[in-house]
């Protein structure tokens, strides 16, 4: 076996995750690559996880850690919703994630972006990075691919965008990060949350915009093989 491929390495979501607020709600976005070292363990994973009807979270870092944190928070929010008799707010969800991330900071390698809509504060995005702090932001980016996006967001994010503008911004940003970041790839998934509910979207890799020096998608060798006429010698 190739010594460079260490299958016992922790599974990490070398990732691009994004949360953006717009006029009336939020758009969350993520790529779909999960890797173990240099091997892609899952090329179509869903890193935007549901916490409640109106709150979702983008996960990055160790897959195991982020799954456990979001499982616990989903469970706590479910209890909280029953006790309160109404949907939990985005702030409560983000604060629960912060609580777990901070009190177990030595055990956890995970950064998250919480996004959702509630009747008190509307669409809100909270970043909960590695150490377990919490930051309310108009837009948040995370994961290994985010380093390619800071400048882009400083330039392209505008106050009071429409839903369509925000979603196109997210898809454009994730596809830019996929093009430059080796640990991000696959498809782009988005989740849009507003007063009307939740819309999930999926953009296959061959339908994303092409960037500098990128080539048009080709039919795979396998498709060409099956279509081609038998070769004669």
């Amino acid at each position: 076996m190739d010594p460079k491929i260490d299958s016992s390495a922790p599974i990490s979501t070398g990732t691009t995750i994004i949360g953006v607020t717009y006029n009336g709600g939020v758009v969350l976005g993520a790529d779909s690559r999960t890797s173990t070292g240099v091997y892609v363990a899952n090329r179509a994973s869903d890193k935007i996880t549901q916490l409640t009807d109106n709150v979702y979270v983008c996960r990055s870092g160790s897959a195991a850690d982020s799954q456990v944190v979001s499982d616990y928070v989903r469970y706590f929010l479910h209890q909280h919703t029953i006790q309160l008799g109404q949907p939990a707010t985005v702030k409560v969800a983000a604060n629960l994630i912060r609580l777990l991330s901070y009190s177990n900071k030595k055990m956890l390698q995970t950064g998250m972006i919480v996004g959702g809509w509630d009747k008190y504060e509307g669409g809100k995005i909270y970043g909960v990075p590695l150490g377990g702090t919490i930051i309310e932001q108009p837009f948040a980016i995370g994961g290994s691919g985010s380093s390619y996006l800071y400048g882009f967001f400083d330039q392209a994010w505008k106050e009071g965008m429409t839903k369509e503008e925000a979603e196109q911004l997210v898809v454009k940003a994730v596809s830019l990060a996929i093009a430059r970041d080796g640990a991000s790839g696959g498809v782009v998934r988005t989740v849009t949350i507003n007063s009307e509910g939740v819309t999930k979207n999926f953009y296959p890799g061959d339908q994303l915009p092409l960037w500098y020096e990128e080539l048009e998608p080709q039919n795979s060798l396998l498709d060409i093989q099956t279509e081609a006429v038998p070769m004669s010698i």
Partner: peptide
């Protein structure tokens, strides 16, 4: 499903 030694699942 797949389950990795660290406890992540797909």
């Amino acid at each position: 499903h797949t389950i990795y030694p660290h406890g992540s699942t797909d």
